[in-house]
């Protein structure tokens, strides 16, 4: 269906909007988000699936956008950090000082946000399993732990 070099029109459903892009089948979702849609919140860092700085949500699940072809995202709901507005997770990351340079932060927030929706009652084992896919070189992870736990606790309190 696709050739490597030929470009095709595609529609991507991104942050609740339909966006037409012209892509090669070899283009990663990360490159299309950044280079065609100007959504630079997802960061290139290892481009090998090792660090999670490019994490976005696909139908609510965290996915490393450097490992996903843009064509694979067609027909799915893509949420990038730019699609989050005033969420508890963003606010709590600030309150907990859960970042320093900020380069890994979009990826961490997307992963944490996805986790808080999919596993609202996640215990530390689940948190650890999910967040091991993201690297932060500035913090010692304590503040990020505080942030995700705090949001999960807030959610639990709201439900009661």
């Amino acid at each position: 269906m696709f050739s490597l070099q030929k470009k095709e029109f595609m529609d991507l459903n991104i942050n609740g909007e339909k966006k037409s892009v012209v892509i090669r089948s070899a283009d990663t979702l990360l490159d299309v988000l950044r280079n065609q849609l100007g959504l630079t919140g997802a960061k290139p860092s290892c481009k090998n699936g090792d660090c999670g700085a490019c994490t976005v949500l696909i139908d609510g699940w965290p996915v490393k956008s450097c490992l996903m072809l843009a064509v694979e995202a067609v027909g799915h709901e893509i949420t990038s950090i730019e699609g989050l507005k005033e969420t508890a997770m963003q606010k709590t990351f600030i309150d907990c000082f859960a970042f320093q340079c900020g380069y890994c932060t979009s990826g961490f927030i997307m992963n944490c946000h996805g986790l808080s929706r999919i596993h609202p009652g996640a215990d530390y084992g689940i948190i650890r399993e999910w967040l091991q896919s993201n690297l932060c070189r500035c913090t010692g992870y304590e503040e990020i732990t505080d942030a995700i736990k705090s949001v999960l606790d807030q959610n639990a309190a709201l439900e009661q």
Binding site: G41, K43, I94, F97, F99
Partner: peptide, 23 residues
Amino acid sequence: VSIPRKESPDKVTGLARYNTDFT
């Protein structure tokens, strides 16, 4: 006083721009 980093709102919204983000 522990005031959050001034650039915090940009860093949690994807609006913080690093060199590689510019064209």
